[in-house]
Simulated scan of single mutants.
Amino acid sequence: MERTTRKMFITLTFVFGLFGVALMIAAFATDHWIKSAPERQESNQMNETSGGSPTKNKGNINFGLFRGHRVLDYGSGGRLKIIKVECSLSFGVCMWTDLTDSTKKTAQLEKLVADYNNQTVKELIDFGLFSFGLWVSTIVTLALGVVWGLVSIMFAIFNIFGKPIETITGPAGLYLWNGLALIFSLLACLLYVGLFVSGIQKNILPKEDVDIGWTSEGRTYLDYSFYLVVGAAGSFLFSVIVLMFSGLQLSCSYSSASEKEVDGMILY
């Protein structure tokens, strides 16, 4: 009866782990980590005084870890553009761009870095640039969270249908892999929040848009793809809690393992 109850709890751990991995993969695949409703301030002031349409000179942007979509309305209808991340390891920065030619993207990035280095007042984000370190760290920790989540799922299946002998394949392993998945999913959340707070919430527009009056400051927010990772972290946390209630002890003792050895085996 006790063994059946433990298997039931481990099955719950498997379900929570599977749900957490699914949420993290969905976060990778969707382009809604941030959303923004930028506006062109100078033109909006002119519209107000002249009675222009309030929908003119407004836009919306959604962006994921690698790409996004931007629609800006200059007064003649929205213009949809697909924007992607272009990074430079040597400069340690990334930018948003709608260019497709790799040579032009590199030249644009180098020019923005040069413009930033030639002044001392404006911040990196004012040039449409953001931290490469925080961006790539978010991706790496998110990927590691998925990997450890998958490992936890495999070990949960093994504990449900098999008879683990090694300590690492039993309770210790279940605690370890779920704990690592929890840690890395939380790190991914914290790193992206750091990236968001350090600049993205101030500007998500390329410099050429900023130069003609567009602004996204105070109009940019975290979107549902980010909260999928928060949900994944919660799912892995529930996995650990379920393990605690299952009665499985986190122990390095091999006494239970030795009981499962085949009769007659000589232990040295």
Rank of each mutant, 00 (worst) to 15 (best):
Met1Phe: 05
Arg3Ala: 05
Arg3Val: 07
Ile10Lys: 00
Phe14Arg: 00
Phe14Tyr: 00
Leu18Arg: 02
Ala22Ile: 13
Met24Asn: 06
Ala29Asn: 10
Thr30Met: 15
Ala37Cys: 08
Pro38Ser: 04
Glu39Phe: 04
Glu39Gly: 09
Arg40Gly: 07
Gln41Ser: 14
Asn47Trp: 12
Asn47Thr: 10
Ser50Gly: 07
Phe63Met: 05
Leu65Val: 02
Leu65Ala: 03
Arg67Phe: 07
Gly68Arg: 08
Arg70Ser: 04
Ser76Leu: 09
Gly78Val: 02
Ile82Thr: 14
Lys84Gln: 12
Cys87Trp: 04
Leu89Trp: 07
Trp96Leu: 11
Thr100Cys: 04
Ser102Met: 07
Ala107Pro: 00
Glu110Ser: 14
Glu110Gln: 14
Val113Leu: 06
Ala114Trp: 11
Asp115Met: 08
Asp115Phe: 01
Thr120Asn: 13
Ile125Glu: 14
Asp126Pro: 02
Gly128Leu: 04
Phe132Cys: 08
Leu134Phe: 12
Leu134Ile: 11
Trp135Asn: 05
Trp135Cys: 04
Val140Tyr: 12
Val146Ser: 02
Met154Thr: 15
Pro164Lys: 06
Pro164Gly: 06
Gly179Pro: 04
Leu180Met: 12
Leu182Asn: 11
Ile183Asp: 00
Leu187Arg: 07
Val193Asn: 03
Leu205Trp: 09
Pro206Met: 12
Glu208Cys: 08
Asp209Pro: 00
Tyr221Pro: 03
Leu222Asn: 07
Phe226Val: 03
Ser235Trp: 00
Val240Glu: 09
Ile241Asp: 00
Met244Lys: 15
Phe245Pro: 02
Leu248Arg: 13
Cys252Trp: 14
Val262Asn: 06
Asp263Val: 13
Ile266Asn: 06
